[in-house]
Nucleic acid binder design. Structure first.
Length: 846
RNA sequence: GCAGGGGUGGCAGAGCCUGGUCAAAUGCGCUGGCUUCAGGGGUCAGUCUCUUAGCGAGUCCGAGGGUUCAAAUCCCUCCCCCUGCACCA
């Protein structure tokens, strides 16, 4: 069978041939066949900048294989693609090369599209969505107006994160460790009037919604932490010699009796009036200045500093008079901006108290122990027994949390509340290449929304890209407009939207991508949403995935969609690494997918990317893996070649052992591969395919003068093989499919069903007896001594076991086979049958 | 610090949820045989240790304990690695 050897040239030729045929015959246009279930497979759409890298290629290989699998399994599959094409890189390229961002973007898009075709992606391009086009972004504007009406969009002045290098503001989610998510420069604070989306209104819904999602745990946990819900109480501390209160938030009301000081944030609104006219005023002001300066300049100061304000407040529960400090570690925008400090039971408070000589008061003791405030070395933060807490003494601290809260509420000195870390989504960007925010500022009328009929507000063309400031502001025609309400001269908003707005609903647009009168029709969305399988990198765990969930919920509240969650199932694919680190230009370890395809064609690369690791784990690129994948494909090819030319020449009828063996391997390969696709563990499909290729190969070799029945068997196994491999390597499989006389395209053929070959079950008891007898006969030992038995028999004897769930493998050539069987259900030495389950092979005796 | 995920044979990477077909899939690498094979192809075998012609025995899945007739798989403790959030009261 060494006749036709597959060459890489042949492989490339085949790929082009079938790509053209698919396109011409519109094989992948979404068909909506009555009675078939709908299935939506989606990869995160790319931002087309520069080259397509291996991570992209992996992403699309995974999605495409899965979409093909679903299609072959009789689903109507929606599998679209588009381009996230607004954003800073285009604008920067424009500044650098003096071309319009659109030109740069279009060039990249067409390059990406040609690579998608080369990969063999089965997208339906009729539904392409491109975010920089007015027919798309006008709906961003439309949604904005709806949000404005509903109060979901609003404008306020606030200190915002400013990236000095991108010259724009960033949302909280886009600041990573004090640095810009895109360019990694240090973020500073700036006070600006900005537009926000009220994502905080959805904090609870976003948290609850996570429960129903089939998402990787780590992503859910990340979102959960980001939303950061905690429940506690608000308590007012009276300020001595004043009518005012200081309100604090705590999650540990059980420690309320142990408060020895209060700390407020440097930017707390009450701070200045508290110290006004006191002798501490100067010191406090200096402290505020330094603390705010540190914060603005991004100093991440681990050291806790503070200053005593000289003011005293009163603990409402025990009338203790305690000092008020200002501290650099207290945040003004979380809780109330002021905290009660319990040094005995909070490590941060403990450190602060030690530093400034503030007393420590113990109110919780560990069970069976008594703490001493004088000698305490660190805060005791665990659960314990309450002391020094009046009527709560003796209670377990955890139980006391609720009891104290209730008591505080009863006395009206406290109120239960829930706090979130989530902040509103800042969407204003001082950049050109984005969706213009559709509002106009009029001196008389204030903020005036652009009337719906005037949408879209198009990006101006008469702008200069100088590299400083927002280019839109250079467009006179854009900025100077008439107020839509009073007609007076007015100024148009020059901020554009965060591009994450674009990607927050594109998956809805795919369902109805050419709609001219609405972003989508509700009924089309109903048909497909939620996305049944979403695939993308974990780096979007918070940003894109949280915004999209918020958007979907907001649109639901507006009555525009019926679903509350956009993505029911998420696969977070792992990175592609080389030599242990991410491929990057600076490290110089890039492997370009197009180069691989230039040499080996798409099938080898796809097969490699899918077979070498689980989709969600990191993939360590290995150069020797590509030739290995080529060898696999080529082994497959030659066996198909061989089968396709075999003619019946013998007349023996009935099936022998080899026939059954092959048939059973084929059936179990179908089972394995199907399972691996359903579990999205594509790499686990490979071993069984490999075994089947070898077995078929040998079968063809060994079978001299095959009967008609045997030839039929070979062909049927070969067809199964081709079907099973086709999501990995669709082009070669099309070619093989036609060689084998398959009808139509393998891409639209039906997935094989396991169990097409009859299995004749034999009673396990009978088998058990047989095996024991064999063991005794062959090994000459008593069955009582066997703890685990592998039985070696000659092929003829295996007849007896055929069709059973036995494990059968070739061992040392053709003569013997090893199989292990078990009857563990019968094994139950101590009457505990929990682990003894039927169907588990292996023979276990004492 | 808090939270999540991991540590498997020379390497990559399954298996762990649901304990027994596990000396542990598959691929790479390595060794040897075969193939009219001129070094990159195909194919077969071997590749923890000892040993056999073949059977076999021992040890083994980060370390140490435990549960069990039986543990890579379950439980506990410890060590190490990765990722995310970072002063959220």
């Amino acid at each position: 069978m060494d006749s036709e050897v597959l060459t890489v040239e042949e492989l490339r030729r085949i790929a082009v041939k079938w790509q053209d045929l698919w396109e011409r015959q519109k094989v992948f246009e979404v068909s909506e066949v009555e009675g078939r279930p709908n299935f939506y497979v989606l990869e995160m759409f790319p931002y087309p900048s520069g080259n397509m890298h291996m991570g992209h290629a992996r992403n699309y290989s995974i999605g495409d294989a899965f979409a093909r699998f679903k299609r072959m399994n009789g689903f109507n599959v929606l599998y679209p693609m588009g381009f996230d094409s607004f954003g800073l890189p285009a604008e920067n390229a424009a500044i650098l090369n003096n071309v319009h961002p659109r030109v740069w973007t279009e060039k990249n898009i067409s390059m990406f599209k040609s690579i998608f075709k080369r990969i063999g992606s089965s997208y339906d391009w009729r539904r392409e969505v491109v975010t920089y086009k007015p027919e798309y972004y006008r709906w961003n504007q439309w949604f904005f107006l709806k949000f404005l009406e509903k109060g979901i969009a609003y404008r306020r002045k606030s200190p915002v994160n400013w990236c000095p290098s991108c010259k724009t503001v960033l949302a909280n989610e886009q600041v990573e460790q004090g640095k810009c998510w895109r360019c990694k420069s240090k973020v500073v604070l700036k006070d600006l009037e900005q537009w926000f989306f009220k994502i905080t209104d959805y904090a609870e819904a976003l948290l609850e919604g996570l429960n129903g999602l089939e998402w990787p745990k780590e992503v859910k946990v990340m979102q959960e932490n980001w939303i950061g819900k905690s429940s506690g109480v608000l308590v007012d501390f009276k300020i001595k010699n004043s009518d005012d209160d200081l309100r604090i938030f705590t999650t540990r009301p059980d420690t309320l009796f142990g408060v020895t000081f209060v700390v407020i944030a440097p930017d707390h609104p009450k701070l200045l009036s508290l110290v006004k006219g006191t002798k501490q005023e100067k010191e406090v002001k200096e402290f505020i200045e330094k603390a705010m300066h540190d914060r603005v300049s991004g100093v991440l100061d681990q050291e806790k500093h503070g200053v005593n304000t000289g003011r005293i407040c009163v603990n409402p529960v025990n009338k203790d008079e305690i000092p008020v400090y200002v501290g650099n570690f207290v945040l003004a925008d979380y809780g109330t901006g002021a905290i009660m400090s319990v040094p005995a039971h909070d490590q941060r408070d403990f450190e602060f108290a030690k530093k400034y000589g503030i007393p420590v008061k113990i109110v919780i003791n560990p069970v069976g122990k008594e703490l001493d405030a004088e000698t305490l070395e660190k805060a005791f933060v665990d659960e314990g027994i309450m002391v020094n807490s009046q009527q709560f003494n003796g209670l377990k601290s955890r139980e006391a949390i609720n009891k104290v809260s209730d008591w505080l509420e009863g006395l009206k000195i406290g109120r239960k509340t829930i706090e979130y870390k989530l902040r509103d989504w800042l969407i204003s960007r001082q950049r050109y290449w984005g969706t213009p925010i559709p509002v106009i500022y009029c001196e008389k009328c204030g903020v005036v929304p652009v009337p719906e009929k005037d949408l879209p507000v198009l990006l101006p063309e008469d702008v200069k890209f100088t590299g400083s400031g927002n280019p839109i502001e250079t467009s006179e025609s854009f900025v100077h407009v008439k107020c839509p309400q009073c007609g007076a001269p007015a100024r148009r908003e020059t901020d554009t939207m965060d591009t994450f707005v674009d990607s927050s609903w594109y998956f809805l647009r795919y369902t109805d991508a050419r709609n001219q009168t609405a972003p989508f029709s509700k009924s089309e969305v109903e048909k497909w949403l939620p996305v049944d399988q979403y695939i993308g990198g974990v780096e979007h765990a918070i940003l894109h995935l949280l915004y999209s969930r918020f958007f979907t919920k907001a649109l639901k509240d507006l009555g525009l969609v019926g679903v509350g969650e956009p993505f029911s199932n998420l696969l977070a694919q792992g990175m592609v690494l080389k030599e242990g680190s991410k491929m990057s230009k600076s490290v110089g370890n890039i492997v370009d997918p197009t180069e691989i395809m230039d040499k080996y064609g798409p099938d080898v690369m796809r097969f490699y990317l899918l077979s070498v690791a689980l989709p969600e784990t990191e993939l360590e690129w290995s150069d020797s893996g590509i030739p290995a994948s080529f060898r696999f494909i080529s082994r497959f090819w030659s066996v198909i070649e061989a089968v396709s030319v075999v003619k019946p020449s013998g007349s023996v009828s009935g099936r022998g052992f080899y026939d059954e063996y092959l048939a059973s391997l084929s059936a179990s390969a179908v089972e394995e591969v199907t399972r691996s696709f359903n579990d999205k563990k594509f790499n686990l499909a490979v071993p069984s395919l490999s075994v089947l290729i070898d077995a078929l190969n040998e079968y063809v070799d060994v079978t001299e003068n095959p009967s008609e029945e045997q030839v039929a068997l070979m062909k049927s196994v070969a067809r199964n093989l081709t079907l099973l491999l086709s999501p990995f390597a669709p082009h070669v499989c099309e070619e093989c499919w036609s060689k084998l006389g398959g009808k139509g395209f393998v891409s639209s053929a039906a997935w094989p069903v396991a169990g097409v070959f009859d299995k004749k079950p034999i009673e396990t008891v009978e088998l058990y007896k047989k095996v024991c007898a064999d063991v005794e006969k062959i090994k000459g030992i008593s069955k009582a001594k066997i703890s685990k038995a592998y039985v070696y028999v000659i092929p003829g004897e295996v007849e007896l076991l055929k069709g059973l769930p036995v494990y059968l493998k070739r061992h040392s050539g053709v003569e013997s086979f090893v199989f292990a069987v078990n009857d563990s259900a019968k094994y139950d030495p101590k009457g505990k049958s929990k682990s003894a389950k039927p169907g588990r092979p292996g023979l276990y005796l004492e």
